[in-house]
Amino acid sequence: MNQNMKFLLVGLAIAIVISVAAPFLASPAPDGLESSAENVIEESKFAVLEESEPAIQSPMPDYSIEGMGKSGEILAITIGSIAMLLIAYGIGKAAKA
């Protein structure tokens, strides 16, 4: 097994560990981007933005799969992490060619 494949597998293992731990460690408070937006955008405009429909619907909104509880959160984060690693790997392979 070459070094790149070992690196990819270690990255995948770390991503899965973080995916399993994240739902239990995440803060219920708004994230940094949302709290920053609250400080910068007028409250009335922010409320309109929060209530508006997104341009594209997320396949797994709020990092969860509806109706599955914590296991849905773990699964959604794991799927997203693996997808991003595979996309990055594919881009790297394409750039190398």
Rank of each mutant, 00 (worst) to 15 (best):
S35Q: 10
V48W: 00
A97R: 15
S27N: 12
I74N: 06
P61R: 05
D31K: 14
P30I: 02
P30V: 01
F7I: 15
A76P: 02
L25N: 10
A55E: 15
L85V: 01
E38G: 15
E50N: 10
Q3S: 13
S81E: 05
I65T: 08
I77V: 11
A95V: 04
L25A: 12
N39Q: 15
M60H: 02
A95K: 11
L12M: 11
P30H: 02
F7D: 14
A94T: 13
S44G: 08
G69H: 02
D62V: 03
K96C: 03
I82T: 05
V48R: 03
L25G: 09
K45T: 14
V10W: 10
M60A: 08
A76I: 00
A47H: 01
Q57W: 03
V10N: 05
A22L: 14
M1W: 00
M5E: 14
F7C: 14
I77Y: 08
L9G: 00
P61A: 10
K70Y: 08
G80P: 03
F24E: 03
N39T: 13
A13H: 03
Q3L: 14
I87N: 11
I16A: 14
L49R: 02
P30K: 01
V17K: 00
V20Q: 06
A22T: 14
S44Q: 13
L12E: 03
A97I: 11
A88T: 09
K96W: 06
A47L: 06
E53L: 12
A95C: 13
M5W: 09
A83H: 01
S81Y: 04
E38C: 07
I65H: 04
G92L: 03
G92V: 00
E34K: 08
L75M: 09
A76F: 00
V17Y: 00
N4D: 13
E51L: 09
